[in-house]
Design a binder for these strands. Structure first.
Length: 564
RNA sequence: CGGGGUGUAGCGCAGCCUGGUAGCGCGUUUCGUUUGGGACGAAAAGGUCCUCGGUUCGAAUCCGGGCACCCCGACCA
C-alpha cells in the first residue's frame, strides 16, 4: 500500500480554469486524472484504483449471470464495418496501415464478435451464448466534454448475447438487466432504468441506466410510476384554457407578430391555445406538416420514429411555395396537399393558427372540422405533465452509465451469423448488446456525493478504504506510531494510503484527505497518541471517533462497516 | 459544423488598448525557525510569451495565416 511521500498524487488547491463540471474539477484537483488532449485522459494511480474497483464489480456480476469474459482488438479492418453499413458513421476513427489498408478503431464490438460467432456457431445446440469484454473504444466525438464524462477514448464493458429466438433474447435481456441493477447498487449510485431510443444501433427495444447528476447531458422524465429518456417520453399534457368556439375560422390581423408568444399576447390567449406548424421534408416522400401546441416543443426523435424515416426542416423557399410567409403558416387548406400529423396534446377545441397570409392568423380553428389530420405523439414532455396514473412528471439531468439493446438480427443478418434449428432450418441468430462505462460510474459517483470540501466516495469505489494521516516528524514517537498503524491496517487487509510526508503541514494533509474523500480518515498525532488512540473521521457523515491503537485494524474495519 | 472565449513559469493570473531588456500569487529548491487545519523569515531556480509569417530600429503587445484547448448549440452506438 502506498506511502504518500513517493506516490504520484498531485493534488491542487485550485481547479484548472478549463474545468466546468464538478466531477471534472474534483478529479483533477484530487490528483486522479490529467488531460493529454481533447477528450483524452490519463488515469493517475489513485484514479485508476477507482476504475479497477468499478471494473471488478462489473466482472463479478457479469460472471455471476454466466457471462464469459474475452478480449477483442481495438484496431479492425474496415471491411466488417462496410458489411454492417456502419463504416459511414462520422464518429468512427479511421486509419490505414503501412500497406494502405483501411482500418478503424472500434467504437463497439458487434461486428468483431458476430464475425467469429458466424464462423464458429452452427447449431441451436451451441446457443445461447453470453460473452463480454472490457476494452478501449475509440470515438471521434464532435465535442468531448466534462472531463471523463464524454471522451474520445474510453473503456467500456460490452456484452453480447446470442439466442435462437426472441424468447431467448428476452431471457438474456432479463439476465443482463438483473446484473446491471446489482452493479449500480453495489457502486452506491442513485440510478434509474429508463426506456430509450434505439438510435443508430438499430434493433427492437432498449433501456438506458441513468445516474442523475448536474453534469448529465441527458434529461430523464421521472414520476413514481414512470421513467423515460425525454427523447421518447410520453405523458398527458397539462390542459390549457381555450378561446370560445366559433362556427368557422376567422381571419385576425397580426401585423409583424411571428412568434407564438407575440401572437398569444396580442390576442389575449395562452400560448397553448396556438397551433405551431412545422413543415418537414421526408427523404423521397415529400413534405409533412407536424403540428404541436404553441407551448410545446417538437420532439424530433419521436417524429422520426413516427415517420419511420429521417427528415429535415423545410427550407424557407419550400415553405413559401407551399404555405405562405414564414411566421404565418398554418394547417387550414393544406390537408389536401400533404399529410398532417397533429400532436395528441392538441385536444378538441378552437385554436389560433397561421392563416398562410402575411400579417394574418386564424382564430377559431377546429382540428378535424377545418382540416383533417392523423393523431400522433410527437412533442417533448414537460415538467408537470401527468403520467397515466396521474402523477406529475419531473425532469432531471442525468448521465448515461449503461445501456442495453435488443439488437435482433441487425448484425447477425449482414454478417451471416446463422444456425440450424431442430428441423434443419437455417435461421439468423437473435442478438442483444449490453454496455457499461466504468469511468462514467466513477464520475457520476463523484457528482452525486461530493460536497464543498471534496469527493466523498462510497467504499466500493474509493481508491483506498483508509487515508492514514501521520502528523509526526521523522524519528519522533508520533511518526513511529503512524508507521506501526500503517503496518497493522495493511496486515488487516485494508487498502490504505499513508500520508507520511515530512514536508507537509497538518492542515495540508487533512485538507488533502478530505479532497480525496476516502471513506475513513485516521489521524495519528500527539493528542491521540497520549491516549493511545487514532482519531477516526468518516467522510460521508463527518462523524468522529477514537480508535485504540491496540487492535486498530479490527477497529477500522468495524468503523468502515457502518459506511456506505 | 455554427456561435463565443482562451493560449505568458508546474498551477491560477496580470501585462497587450497606448511597441522599448517579462511580472504577481501559489507551488518548487536551499538554510533557519515552526509543527493539529495549506506557518514565518532569508536566499534561489524556473518562461522559444502556442506557432509561422508580416510591419517596425525594436513585437508578448500591431497585422495576417495556422494550431491547440474550453464553453454554448448541432451531433452523440
Amino acid at each position: 500500500m502506498p506511502k504518500r511521500s513517493n506516490y504520484l498524487l498531485p493534488t491542487l488547491r485550485e481547479a484548472p480554469a478549463d474545468a466546468e463540471a464538478l466531477s471534472h474539477k474534483l478529479m483533477v484537483r484530487a490528483g486522479l486524472i490529467r488531460q493529454l488532449g481533447s477528450g483524452l485522459y490519463t488515469y493517475l494511480p489513485a484514479g485508476y484504483r477507482s476504475i479497477k474497483r468499478t471494473e471488478a464489480i462489473i466482472r463479478e456480476e457479469m460472471d455471476a449471470i454466466g457471462a464469459h469474459e474475452m478480449l477483442m482488438p481495438v484496431i479492425q479492418p474496415i471491411e466488417l464495418w462496410r458489411r454492417t453499413g456502419r463504416d459511414t458513421i462520422s464518429e468512427l476513427f479511421r486509419l490505414s496501415d503501412r500497406k494502405g489498408a483501411e482500418m478503424v478503431l472500434a467504437m463497439t464490438h458487434e461486428e468483431n464478435l458476430t464475425f467469429h460467432i458466424a464462423a464458429e456457431v452452427r447449431s441451436y445446440r451451441e446457443l445461447p451464448l453470453l460473452l463480454y469484454h472490457l476494452q478501449t473504444k475509440g470515438r471521434d466525438e464532435p465535442r468531448p466534454r466534462a472531463g471523463v464524462l464524454r471522451t474520445r477514448e474510453f473503456t467500456m464493458k460490452d456484452a453480447y448475447s446470442f439466442d435462437r429466438d426472441e424468447a431467448g433474447l428476452e431471457a438474456s435481456y432479463a439476465r443482463n438487466m438483473a446484473a446491471y441493477e446489482r452493479i449500480f447498487d453495489r457502486a452506491g449510485l442513485r440510478w434509474y432504468k429508463v426506456e430509450s431510443d434505439v438510435g443508430m444501433m438499430g434493433g427492437s427495444g432498449a433501456h438506458e441506466y441513468m445516474a442523475p447528476c448536474p453534469a448529465g447531458e441527458n434529461e430523464i422524465a421521472l414520476a413514481p410510476d414512470y421513467a423515460a429518456n425525454v427523447e421518447i417520453a410520453s405523458a398527458r399534457a397539462v390542459r390549457v384554457e381555450l378561446p370560445p368556439e366559433l362556427d368557422a375560422p376567422h381571419e385576425q390581423p397580426t401585423p409583424a407578430l411571428t412568434t407564438v408568444s407575440d401572437v398569444a399576447q396580442a390576442l389575449g390567449v395562452p400560448t397553448g391555445a396556438l397551433i405551431k406548424a412545422m413543415p418537414v421534408v421526408v427523404e423521397g416522400r415529400g413534405m409533412v406538416l407536424a403540428l404541436v401546441r404553441g407551448d410545446h416543443r417538437l420532439n424530433e426523435i419521436k417524429l422520426r420514429n413516427r415517420l419511420g424515416a429521417d427528415f429535415r426542416p423545410a427550407h424557407r423557399e419550400e415553405i413559401e411555395a407551399e404555405f405562405g410567409p414564414v411566421g404565418f403558416i398554418g394547417p387550414v387548406g393544406l390537408d389536401a396537399k400533404m399529410p398532417i400529423l397533429l400532436d395528441e396534446a392538441i385536444r378538441p377545441g378552437c385554436y389560433v393558427s397561421g392563416a398562410n397570409k402575411l400579417d394574418t392568423h386564424l382564430i377559431g380553428v377546429h382540428p378535424g372540422r377545418d382540416f383533417s389530420f392523423e393523431p400522433a405523439d410527437i412533442r417533448c414532455v414537460e415538467a408537470g405533465d401527468l403520467t397515466a396514473a396521474g402523477h406529475p412528471i419531473v425532469i432531471e439531468p442525468a448521465i448515461e452509465i449503461g445501456n442495453i439493446f435488443k439488437l435482433g438480427t441487425r448484425y447477425s443478418a449482414p454478417l451471416g451469423a446463422t444456425f440450424l434449428d431442430e428441423n434443419g432450418v437455417e435461421k439468423p441468430i437473435v442478438m442483444g448488446s449490453y454496455g457499461i462505462g466504468p469511468a462514467r460510474i466513477v464520475a457520476a459517483s463523484i457528482e452525486q456525493f461530493a460536497d464543498q470540501i471534496g469527493i466523498s466516495w462510497p467504499r466500493a469505489l474509493a481508491p483506498f478504504d483508509v487515508h492514514l494521516v501521520g502528523l509526526g516528524k521523522p524519528g519522533d514517537p508520533v511518526s513511529a506510531a503512524a508507521e506501526a498503524a500503517y503496518l497493522e491496517l495493511t496486515a488487516a487487509g485494508l487498502e490504505v494510503l499513508y500520508d507520511d510526508r515530512a514536508n507537509a503541514g497538518a492542515g495540508e494533509k487533512l485538507t488533502d484527505a478530505e479532497l480525496l474523500g476516502c471513506p475513513l480518515r485516521l489521524t495519528i498525532g500527539k493528542r491521540g497518541l497520549a491516549e493511545g488512540v487514532a482519531e477516526a473521521r468518516t467522510r460521508r457523515d463527518g462523524a468522529d471517533a477514537s480508535l485504540s491503537l491496540d487492535g486498530l485494524g479490527a477497529a477500522a474495519l468495524a468503523r468502515l462497516d457502518g459506511v456506505a
